[in-house]
């Protein structure tokens, strides 16, 4: 896991807010918040919940779902593992799903079984294309290994996105202001910015929004075949 010392790091070097570094604002954060947020960039927690075999499958799954393929990569699997180890759930589970930790273990095992059946290799050793087909199959399924497909999907996306978009590199990528206490905001009009906020690279450069989405969808399809 590379952890760049360079400011304004973004996951995989993606993003349109050139030079925006939310961590440069950390001197203006309260100490409790600063400790929690800076810790995410300083330390990759050791695995405590997943076995190393489970972690391999979880890493492949989460990196695929978040397109977290290039360095610097957000340590999503370690962040999810920490939550599961500490039992930090969302405060509910679906009646037709086990408790979150058990649901994660089972769903990772099922992914591996599907991969071995279809591609004669563990999920983590499949190509991105093969992994993508299996995962798309779960999203499209009514029932998957006795579990409701949409509830498995909800489990994966909730934990995955909560980890990824908690990371300051992701905030740099999307231009989010990050913690704002005690500094706050004084410029509240659409189209205006605080002195420390960075303008997005020309919104039409290289292509406008609609084409950027189409490009992302094409990239997704090339990898996974046509979507539903």
């Amino acid at each position: 896991m590379s952890r760049p010392d360079t400011p304004a790091a973004t996951p995989g070097g993606e993003g349109r807010f050139d030079g925006y570094d939310v961590l440069a604002q950390s001197p203006f954060w309260d100490p409790v918040t600063a400790e929690v947020v800076l810790d995410r960039t300083r330390r990759v927690p050791a695995l405590a919940f997943f076995s190393s075999a489970e972690a391999d499958v979880a890493r492949a799954l989460l990196d695929l779902m978040l397109a977290n393929h290039a360095e610097p990569r957000v340590p999503v699997v370690e962040m999810v593992d920490r939550r599961l180890f500490e039992g930090e759930t969302d405060g509910w589970r679906y009646e037709d799903m086990p408790e979150d930790g058990e649901a994660w273990r089972r769903s990772l095992r099922f992914l591996d079984e599907d991969a071995r059946r279809a591609f004669q290799a563990g999920f983590a050793h499949c190509t991105l294309d093969q992994q993508g087909r299996i995962v798309q199959g779960v999203q499209d399924s009514e029932e998957w290994h006795g579990l409701p497909g949409k509830h498995v999907w909800s489990l994966w996306t909730r934990y995955g996105c909560a980890a990824f978009y908690a990371h300051p590199w992701a905030w740099n990528e999307i231009g989010f202001g990050g913690p704002a206490y005690p500094r706050g905001y004084k410029v509240l009009h659409p189209g205006w910015r605080e002195p420390f906020e960075v303008a997005e690279r020309d919104a039409e450069d290289p292509v406008p929004w609609s084409e950027r989405v189409e490009q992302a969808e094409r990239a997704h399809e090339v990898r996974l075949g046509p979507r539903r």
Partner: peptide
């Protein structure tokens, strides 16, 4: 919604992978 909550808006459309990231990259708009 802040970013984590907003990501639920994007995944609710069925998006994941590159498309999810592209929508999230557009958060300020």
């Amino acid at each position: 919604p802040l970013p984590i909550t907003y990501s639920e808006h994007v995944t609710a459309q069925g998006h994941w992978g590159e498309v999810l990231r592209e929508y999230m990259r557009d958060y300020v708009h």
